[in-house]
Amino acid sequence: MSNVFIALQTNEESRHIVEALLEDNPTAVVDEQPAMVKINVPGSLVLRRTTVEEKMGRPFDLQEMQVNLITLSGHVDEDEDEFRLSWND
């Protein structure tokens, strides 16, 4: 199965996003590089708004992630509650 990935700048906001990703995707693997963090997950990945809000302790709009996003791989699907990445193979 191919990996999907998402890479974020390392900062205080994305720290919570990464925590949420690890909680929602048990097979996720973290790859830390200078100033950035890359999360690889086999097949598909989901980021849930409620999990991020829990970690941050404040309301969070998933589109806020645009500010800290570096790159991603896979088909994107986004609504108010979930951001998903997947491959169809």
Binding site: Q9, A35, M36, Q66, V67, N68, L69, I70, T71, L72, S73, H75, V76
Partner: peptide, 20 residues
């Protein structure tokens, strides 16, 4: 450079999605 690069790259994720 790191900052302009990451700032630009945050747009790239959208560009990549457009390309696909």
């Amino acid at each position: 450079t790191m900052t302009f690069g990451f700032s630009a790259q945050s747009d790239e994720a959208r560009h990549m999605t457009l390309g696909l």
